[in-house]
Simulated assay, not measured.
Amino acid sequence: MARLLSVSAQWEYARAVLAHVAGHTPLPGAEARPLVLMLTLRTARTGNLVGQDVNALGLTDPEDLVEQLTGCGWLSLPGAVGDLLASRPENPTPVTVPSLVPDEGGTGPFTFGRKTRPKLSGWAQRVVSDKKLRKAKAPAGARLLAVTLATWTNEAGRLGPGGRGVTLNALTNRVPVGAGELRDLIDRLTAADWLTDAALTDAALTDTHLTGRLPERVLPLTCPLLD
């Protein structure tokens, strides 16, 4: 089976970006994080953005979120937020995230090169704009969970190291929602055929785990965990 990200180094880069975003998103909540993820992937070196990139994330109020990111200094735009959201592929908007710009020595937060960045960005865009997620009008949190789970499977698509599941603590670190909302997001992914056999179970005396697997149609978008 051919995966969109075809080599294990790219899978590790994808996980590294998700971990970075979890620790460096300047705004709280599950809506801001997929936007920051997409902007991080687009601007890890240099980046252009069009309105559809933002509108595809299922955000409740994309203009307000972008305004907050520019207002706190995390994101720099050459013009108004409305211009970004209205921009099209033939006239994209250049965007900059100052904290991601490499220093004078060329050192930045990521080790992948210019050729890898668009591959990672394209992969994330394919996940969040998945046809069935779009049809289900999945909210931003569900799309963020979809990206997260795509990086936490084994080769066969079962969740977690060795297919033993992902801890609830790890999930809520990446998808910052309460347990009740997380269950709703899991149900949404199940209804959109992104997740099957999903169950939250107690394991190893303490942590609650999400077990299950990603269906065959999703496997080309997965980044399997390495043993």
Rank of each mutant, 00 (worst) to 15 (best):
E67S: 15
A150I: 03
T116N: 10
L168W: 09
L5H: 00
D207W: 11
G73S: 10
S99R: 12
L226C: 10
R217W: 06
V21H: 02
L195R: 02
A22S: 03
L84N: 12
T211V: 05
G58K: 11
A32Y: 01
D53L: 07
R164D: 15
E216L: 14
T43Q: 11
G122M: 09
A86C: 04
L35D: 00
E90C: 12
R217M: 12
P224A: 09
G106C: 00
A146N: 04
N91C: 11
T111S: 03
S129Y: 12
R188F: 01
L27D: 01
T111E: 08
A2E: 00
S99P: 01
D184I: 13
D130L: 11
G71F: 11
A146C: 07
V7L: 14
P78S: 12
L41E: 00
R114I: 00
R126I: 03
E104A: 13
V147T: 07
V128W: 14
A170G: 14
P139K: 09
L200G: 05
P62I: 07
G162N: 07
D207S: 12
A142Q: 10
G160P: 09
R45H: 04
K137G: 09
G141M: 14
P28Y: 04
N169L: 15
G162T: 11
A56H: 05
K115E: 09
K119C: 08
L210V: 02
T46P: 02
V175A: 14
L210M: 12
N154P: 07
R33A: 00
V81F: 05
A204N: 12
F110R: 14
T201I: 12
N55R: 15
